[in-house]
Nucleic acid binder design. Structure first.
Lengths: 215, 215
DNA sequence: GGCGGGCGATGACATTTGTCATCGGCGACC
DNA sequence: GGTCGCCGATGACAAATGTCATCGCCCGCC
């Protein structure tokens, strides 16, 4: 099984060419060093933002991209979407601190092949890089279970928009302005969202939606 | 300068005995491996929670404790407070994702000697471990500047309490119950806090207080 | 063509919040 | 002893928020 990645010939000696993207310098370096200890893994690129990640992945034609979910600019899922078209052979793995069911769903929809919370053991990461590079998939079992029980967001697109704007704590009028809606309409959407989420008020609704990863 | 830690004789060969506490398994392992590459640093204990961190630090009589700020149970600052009495010679370093001025102030008050955001470069961490072990201090310069300009929390202790309870999005009555106060009193405190923080509503106030690290 | 659902809006209404003045008790400080 | 600030409370009032019914428009589906 000599290394012929999905993207044609890979590294000179069959190592897996990896991009690692994380905005936290300390963490990124630590992770890179750790992955580089594996002799079949070669971290050939690093990035601190989503945009940088896309650029570096393409430039170095990496086999696997390990992406932090929350980054300035594009988030990990958005990067995966871009790479799906710009570097079709590249497989993406998302790593995140906060494992919300909704995030997992969106990531999977974006074609991500691996999804891990940062609470998983270190050995797992290298394994998942290999699994994914070989064409397999891996999502954290516990998260998968949560995602299944949690179901999809009951909110309509507009309701999500408005709720997202409400997340800043802004009063109704400001939300209305920013969404180009009448204040009354905003209240209606918010009221609907609250009913669907079984929340006592909109801030509670925001908290619930956030917890589920729906906004 | 043979290694005689503040706590009496340290490791057998003058290495610095370090505890590393972080609830994210992946990160913790990566950081441990990275620090262990330094030949004058020896990570002799790990912990995933605040309580565990205190226990392990004492048990292994470490010279330096590297603590993540946000952990289940005790947070990094609380651990530092405990260690100040239970293991007086131990120096504490706090590492955190979100650098809020208030957190820095509280940490310094708790006797912490180093304070770093996770965005700092990897080389810095080992340096700070050495600096702190040698009796020095190190706080991230940018954070220090913010902390100085930000000033202290204008909130009274009770106002902070109530605001913290309000942070969950609960309605007034629930806050009142949980704080054992009359609803009217809660509204007064909240109103005061909002005025002091120049916030449009209490959720805005929560956001501001959080940003400053005052709750 | 009818039906349902999302979208956007309005109006009326009840409830919740925020504001303000005011009170009494307590402890610290001069 | 007087003053000041924090604590806890009450009441009155205004403003923001949440609820509900109802309307019209448009689009997709059967």
């Amino acid at each position: 099984m000599t290394a012929t990645g999905p993207n044609g010939p890979t590294g000179p000696t069959g190592t897996i060419r990896v991009l690692l993207a994380d905005d936290e310098h300390l963490i990124r370096t630590a992770l890179v060093q750790m992955l580089d200890l594996e002799d079949d893994v070669d971290v050939v690129a690093e990035a601190a933002t989503g945009d940088e990640a896309v650029a570096m992945a393409v430039k170095h034609a990496v086999d696997v991209a390990v992406l932090d979910l929350q980054m300035p600019g594009l988030d990990g899922t958005a990067v995966a979407e871009r790479l799906a078209t710009q570097l079709p052979g590249c497989r993406c793995i998302i790593v995140t601190s906060h494992g919300r069911p909704g995030h997992l769903k969106r990531a999977l929809a974006a074609g991500v092949r691996g999804f891990l919370p940062k609470t998983t053991s270190a050995a797992t990461l290298a394994d998942v890089v290999r699994t994914v590079h070989a064409g397999g998939r891996h999502v954290d079992p516990q998260l998968a279970a949560e995602a299944i029980t949690a179901g999809d967001s009951p909110l309509t697109p507009r309701e999500s928009d408005v709720l997202e704007l409400a997340a800043t704590g802004a009063p109704i009028d400001e939300i209305a302005q920013r969404a180009s809606l009448s204040p009354g309409t905003v209240r209606n959407y918010l009221s609907n969202a609250m009913a669907k989420l079984d929340a006592a008020n909109r801030h509670d609704a925001v908290a619930i939606a956030r917890r589920m990863g729906w906004i």
